[in-house]
Nucleic acid binder design. Structure first.
Lengths: 209, 209
DNA sequence: AATAATCTTAAACATTTGTTTAATTTTAAA
DNA sequence: TTTAAAATTAAACAAATGTTTAAGATTATT
């Protein structure tokens, strides 16, 4: 399928609305109006509303695996340094693509759309295997403890980030950070998430305090 | 409002369907059929589909705060023991009420329904404050480090559990646990979650390894 | 310039949705 | 037993939904 700028425009409008109101509550008319295109263009371009969602998933998840692999190619890095890179990469992407991450989270909870389930499953397996390899390497080098429950560990990373994104405004209120702009708050949360998760990973992976 | 057994039956049927298909994808006709009542009964009993959801939230979140407070009343427990009780209580409830927890997660992501936002916000504030008090107490007694980011720490607990519930079947596959029944898998995940999160909390709260 | 392919549009379509109505049955009270 | 209230039902309602159609405009190709 050829993807024109108009395709992208519709996809990103849809993403915005799906994240704000949920897939089912977003009508094709909403998307068309917000994107400034005719209602029928969405069926013409994507076939259906459901297919549109699937294209969005492909559009957003296309090169995740590759990026992660490139990140770990650098042989001069210690295992824990690589783990830290992975953590920061995940935080960065989750924050940068907040809207899509929210949609993804909902879709995983509902677990209905077979196409999406398949796409996500593929990414998950790949990521888990990469990190498992990385951890085994660290264990061989004596840097990491064994055994490690990789899925459980990744659940902590992904879950903590998700939860913080959900609770962003609540985090602001509870910590009395009203004076910060949204960008400043976001930067602060990123920094704190990074430190926090790295500390957690060290506790699970290494023997150091 | 008087709550008859039939109310409960409808509420729990709705919960089942909301968790399986999402709120929007579940029709009032679905609920009526599955619960074995006439379509009109749902409006007659609850007023509307939206109100039904709100009753469900009240039904499920009614006495959370009280239970948590009772848990911490016991003065003979050390601060870390209380924290461990809280962790196990949360895991137990999340696993036991998986369906409702999924619905809650989706509703928080969408963040649209004002009634639900209000209910959840109240619970969150109360829980965070209770745990903040508990941690401050631990700090005074010298058992805990300072400072501690309470919201971040709770996000790790809640997020990890959510993520594991989402990835349950994936966890089974990746760890080759096909020989376990669903109940056995659930028990295993509970146990591992408990150990894992307690380890994480110790790393953040105390100075011990 | 003529023709074909692609894009765009407004209108129509068939379903499905949550909710209401009005009639009927069941239950409770007098 | 009679009467009033509550519960239950099937049918109807209006609104909204995703999708299609068929006509027209635009662009590309020859």
């Amino acid at each position: 399928m050829v993807i024109s700028p108009k395709h992208i425009q519709i996809l990103e409008t849809a993403e915005k609305l799906f994240a704000a109101k949920g897939f089912e509550c977003t009508t094709v008319r909403d998307i068309a109006e917000e994107a400034g295109v005719n209602l029928a263009m969405i069926s013409y371009y994507f076939g259906s509303k459901a297919k549109l969602m699937e294209y969005l998933f492909e559009h957003r998840t296309g090169n995740i695996g590759m990026r992660v692999e490139n990140l770990l190619k650098n042989d001069s890095l210690a295992p824990m340094e690589k783990v830290e890179l992975l953590i920061d990469e995940h935080i960065e992407r989750a924050v940068q693509q907040q809207r899509f991450h929210k949609i993804m989270l909902c879709e995983q909870v509902i677990n209905k759309n077979p196409v999406i389930i398949k796409v996500l499953r593929k990414i998950k397996i790949r990521n888990t295997q990469i990190i498992e390899t990385l951890i085994k390497d660290g264990q061989k080098k004596g840097a990491f403890k064994k055994p490690v429950d990789v899925v459980l560990l990744l659940s902590t990373m992904i879950g903590t980030v998700n939860q913080m994104l959900i609770n962003k405004t609540y985090y602001r209120d509870f910590n009395k950070l009203d004076d910060l702009t949204d960008e400043q708050l976001q930067a602060l949360i990123k920094k704190r998430l990074s430190n926090h998760i790295k500390k957690l990973f060290k506790a699970i992976l290494t023997n150091e305090p």
